[in-house]
């Protein structure tokens, strides 16, 4: 009986300075907060989610991914009007899954980043809406065409943003 030998694929784990992670997170929250004031259409963006996804894909560590997602989500909750925990839960799950996917598939290619961002954006919104429905009994639409548009827009921004954030990586 032949023994099963799994195919070994080398997935590089990228590291960042802690200050860089904190700085990028704060910048994302900051821009997300005041950008729509001056540019209302910027409300369609979810920069904190993109940051969560990026660090999840890059670090490829589910624990740090979910913790970073939690922190970012909770901060977003605190700076918004929603109950604290809604974004926290959604981003915790998203960070965890992004890290898990990042450790299994190539997330460096722009097309891959685009597709994953669309998928995770929809997942994030679904998690948020389901949490609202289940825990807060607030009935929000689960899936809309507007959601797809937002997902596509955020994915386009991700294609531009992620290469910029790549420059913050520590040399391996």
């Amino acid at each position: 009986m032949a023994a099963y030998t799994p195919t070994e694929t080398h997935i590089e784990v990228h590291k960042f300075r802690v200050l860089a992670v904190i700085g990028v997170t704060l910048a994302a929250l900051l821009i997300q907060s005041f950008l729509p004031v001056h540019f209302p259409r910027a409300r369609m963006l979810d920069l904190p989610l993109l940051v969560t996804l990026y660090f999840g894909f890059s670090r490829r560590n589910p624990s740090t991914g979910l913790l970073l997602g939690m922190v970012i989500g909770l901060a977003q909750d605190c700076l918004g009007r929603s109950a604290i925990g809604l974004y926290g839960i959604a981003k915790t799950l998203t960070g965890f899954l992004a890290s898990s996917f990042g450790s299994r598939i190539d997330v460096e290619h722009p097309l891959s980043r685009f597709g994953l961002t669309v998928a995770f954006y929809i997942f994030h919104q679904a998690a948020y809406t389901l949490t609202q429905r289940v825990l807060l009994a607030q009935h929000e639409a689960l899936f809309t065409t507007h959601l797809l548009l937002q997902a596509g827009l955020n994915a386009l921004v991700a294609i531009v943003l992620f290469p910029l954030l790549d420059k913050l990586r520590l040399p391996s």
Partner: peptide, 9 residues
């Protein structure tokens, strides 16, 4: 983490 946040909610 999820449990903690659910509890917080």
């Amino acid at each position: 983490v999820l449990l903690a946040q659910v509890l917080a909610l």
